[in-house]
């Protein structure tokens, strides 16, 4: 009698363990969903500005910063280090990128905003970070970014730092 019981219980427990292994993989889409819903991560989508009236009463300082991951043979630098903008005002800056390798390389810029809770107020209308960028050997390029700071940005955030890390997407060269 106990033998049959043992088999049943064992099978159920094995199923539970297998279910938890699958749950680990299910956490990947769940995690991405949570990040997008809470605004912790940019959606990578183009933001539109409908209300053209900027809030002239305040200024937000935006700082720009460019980092290249160690396995990408590029040079990457913003043309402007910092810019003061009114919330709701559209601004443009550009970044200079140079491939110093002797071959074509593809990279992807990953943005991050500091402080992290300011991310949801930094709206990108056009950005080179929306897609992968390919540079031929020794090629240089100017890469544009158009953005605005949303008008509902809390009063206590006066500075936003936008930091890009350019990463190599050519896996296992």
């Amino acid at each position: 009698m106990t033998k049959i019981d043992n088999k049943k219980t064992t099978r159920k427990l094995f199923l539970l363990a297998a279910g938890m292994f699958a749950f680990a993989f299910a956490l990947v889409p769940i995690y991405n969903l949570v990040c997008e819903v809470t605004g912790l991560r940019g959606t990578g989508k183009t933001e539109m500005l409908f209300d053209q009236k900027a809030d002239k009463t305040r200024l937000v300082l935006v700082e720009f910063d460019g980092i290249v991951n160690s396995n990408l043979p590029w040079e990457f630098e913003p043309s402007t280090r910092q810019l003061e903008v009114h919330p709701g005002e559209v601004a443009s800056v550009s970044y200079y990128v140079t491939n110093i390798a002797d071959k074509e390389v593809t990279g992807q810029a990953i943005p991050s905003v500091i402080p992290w809770f300011g991310n949801q107020y930094f709206k990108k209308m056009a950005c080179f970070c929306f897609e992968k960028q390919t540079l031929a050997a020794k090629e240089s390029k100017e890469m544009p970014l158009r953005f605005y700071v949303s008008k509902d940005i809390p009063k206590d955030i006066n500075t936003l730092r936008l930091s890009y890390t350019f990463m190599n997407t050519d896996k296992k060269q």
């Binding site: 427990l13 539970l16 363990a17 297998a18 279910g19 938890m20 292994f21 699958a22 749950f23 680990a24 993989f25 956490l27 990947v28």
Partner: peptide, 13 residues
């Protein structure tokens, strides 16, 4: 049983 498979999944990724 509830947690070890999740670690196994993580290191598999």
């Amino acid at each position: 049983i509830l947690i070890v498979p999740v670690l196994a999944g993580g290191v598999t990724m």
